[in-house]
Design a protein around this nucleic acid. Structure first.
Length: 605
DNA sequence: AACGAGCGCGCG
DNA sequence: AAAGCGCGCGCTCGTT
């Protein structure tokens, strides 16, 4: 078949590449790559294999530079579908592995091609984040990648020279980036990068499955919020009719700056950048406490706080969540691997990780008819991994066999804590704030701020903590020392995180802990995906559902056929336990996970 | 009209 | 320099 592009020879103005238009050429190309590493990039006619095709694949390493046009390949139809198997056993280097992986999995046995992500390699070496290939290339290579062709028509019978060049450039840039980071990577960092790569199949499963959403029930919930919001709005308008937009913190700040006496303005917390009066819920409650009981001002401030709360639900978790529901009645959120600096996941479109626990939002995330949701979370995982990272026997013992917060509370108050009394609950809550302060690297100032106590009291609480858990306490300073000495901190999974020139204690203290918790979840997720793949292969009826649907930092959620819910819970418990042991071999597993089964996210027993 | 900064707040 | 970690998103407001 003659090529519509004419002679394959290429204009020299850009680094040349071979245009592949026949199956034989492709076969030879793949054979010539052999075991060598190579970068790969697809141009596709849509974002999903369900609705589109792979038009181009560009391949680049030091000895091979090729661009494959699958519309030209001399096969009956849809070239890529029939050629993808040629890449079985290969591990292409890509940017944004989830994308290329989906197309391979659609056309070959899932997992037979395992994409490796150059961005995850960078994350393993420097710490996580999100970027585009263009920004990545600009920052690391100072190469400008013009992305205007990215959204061009990749379905056109004949592609323009610009389209072809752009397509190849992405693979070339990916290869250059990979070489740069691979040259500096040590084996531990590579082990970490592989962990991120290995998470990709689980993430694809979660994103593709989505979570069923009861839009009708949520619409009723939203109507309730809106009625409450509108009622509060009427009250606010009656109390302060001269504020044009009650939703504007700036206008509120201006109003109070003019109308309130100086002693109020001195007490009123300010915002960080612009110094206007803070309108946080905390500030409003603080200020309302200064106003006389039943005064209009007090009523206004408390009502404003309530109004802002319910407005938040309306704007962030009302219509926008309903709009996120796909044609299949499910919400397909994204789970972004290593998106946080600590390489924790982030979630977006929508951010499932910020779904409110209250106001019946989680009840709208349901299992489809005939299914149940199965969920477990690691209990107190951050304190637990802190104990394991530091070898603090007493902290570990308290995490595993006791109640850390109650123990710290007893230490702080000098009295036994009865969790059934309000005093006991309050003491435990305050102890929890201290322990979190330690994990976050707080100073006495921070602890005092979060607990609403004096600096002296806060310091004494911290001293109690340091006395009981000396190794865990000392760890924070060890990590700061490591950061100051080397500029990086080595994480438990082998990855490293670049720290700023003068690293602050809070970050040095927290990053390794937050990262260790992520590592545990990552190992659990990888194992659980493998378990579900195996179990699905043994099911009597193929339409019987067992799927990962979400991870919320320290929790996993599956949706499963009701008849398999108990079994799935057991598999999940085992996978989460083994994932934890992958990171901390031999660690105690008692009371490690808790959770249950239910018809919705909000009703798990 | 589009964009970014700033703020606030939901979650772990 | 700030000094309790990590996110994403909706809103307002000034700039382009």
């Amino acid at each position: 078949m003659p090529s519509i592009y004419g002679p394959v020879a290429h204009k020299p103005r850009l680094p040349s590449y071979e245009l592949i238009t026949t199956f034989d050429q492709l076969f030879d190309l793949v054979a010539s790559i052999g075991a060598d590493e190579f970068a790969l990039d697809f141009e596709t006619t849509s974002l999903s294999p369900k609705t589109g095709k792979v038009r181009l694949a560009s391949i680049c390493n030091d000895s091979t530079r090729a661009l494959i046009d699958f519309y030209e390949i001399d096969l009956p139809s849809d070239g890529f579908e029939h050629c993808a198997f040629l890449f079985s056993g290969f591990s292409p280097i890509v940017f944004n592995a989830g994308f290329e992986q989906r197309w391979f999995d659609h056309s070959t046995r899932p997992g037979s091609v395992k994409c490796r992500d150059v961005w995850y390699l960078r994350c393993a070496m420097r710490g996580g984040g999100r970027t585009s290939l263009a920004r990545f290339a600009k920052h690391e290579l100072d190469i400008e990648v013009d992305k205007t062709e990215q959204v061009s028509d990749w379905d056109a019978p004949a592609l323009t020279q610009e389209q072809l060049d752009y397509a190849f450039l992405d693979a070339e840039v990916t290869w250059k980036l990979y070489k740069k980071f691979r040259a500096d990577a040590d084996s531990e960092q590579l082990r970490c990068a592989q962990m991120f790569d290995d998470m990709v199949p689980a993430v694809i499963e979660m994103e593709d499955a989505g979570m069923a959403f009861d839009a009708a029930a949520h619409t009723r919930t939203l109507q309730g919020w809106e009625a409450e919001r509108d009622g509060l709005r009427v009250q606010l308008d009656e109390l302060l009719p001269d504020i044009e937009n009650i939703n504007s913190d700036t206008q509120l700040s201006d109003y109070f700056s003019k109308s309130m006496p100086d002693n109020w303005l001195r007490a009123w917390p300010r915002t960080e950048k612009t110094g206007q009066l803070s309108m946080t819920s905390k500030s409003l409650v603080l200020l309302s406490g200064m106003a006389p009981v039943d005064s209009p001002l007090r009523t206004f401030l408390t009502t404003l706080s309530e109004y802002k709360h319910i407005s938040k639900y309306c704007s962030s978790f009302g219509e926008s969540l309903l709009k996120s529901v796909g044609p299949d009645g499910r919400i397909h959120a994204r789970f972004n691997i290593a998106a946080a600096k600590t390489c924790r996941f982030s979630s977006s479109s929508p951010n499932l990780q910020q779904t409110p626990r209250g106001e019946h939002v989680r009840q709208a995330f349901v299992a489809a008819p005939g299914n149940m949701l199965v969920s477990l979370d690691y209990s107190g995982i951050e304190l637990r991994v802190l104990a394991l990272l530091t070898g603090d026997e007493r902290l570990l013992e308290d995490c595993v066999w006791g109640d850390v917060h109650a123990t710290v509370a007893e230490k702080m108050t000098g009295q036994p804590v009865d969790k059934s009394t309000p005093e006991g609950k309050e003491a435990r809550r305050r102890a929890k704030a201290v322990s979190f302060g330690i994990i976050y690297g707080s100073s006495a100032l921070g602890v005092a701020g979060s607990m609403g106590c004096s600096m002296d009291d806060a310091q004494s609480y911290i001293d109690f903590w340091a006395d009981r858990y000396p190794k865990a306490f000392q760890y924070r300073y060890d990590m700061m020392g490591e950061a100051q000495g080397s500029g990086v901190i080595r994480m438990v999974d082998g990855g490293t995180v670049w720290m700023s020139r003068r690293p602050a204690l809070p970050k040095c203290a927290n990053y390794p802990v937050q990262r260790a918790a992520l590592s545990v979840m990552a190992r659990a997720l990888i194992r659980h995906k493998a378990t579900l793949d195996t179990r699905r292969g043994c099911l009597p009826s193929p339409q019987c559902m067992i799927s990962l649907v979400a991870t919320i930092h320290d929790a996993l959620i599956d949706e499963v056929d009701a008849g398999h819910a108990d079994a799935a819970l057991g598999w999940m418990r085992n996978d989460m336990t083994e994932g934890y042991l992958d990171v901390f071999p031999g660690a105690p597993t008692a009371k490690l996970v808790e959770g249950g089964i239910g018809p919705s996210w909000g009703e798990l027993e």
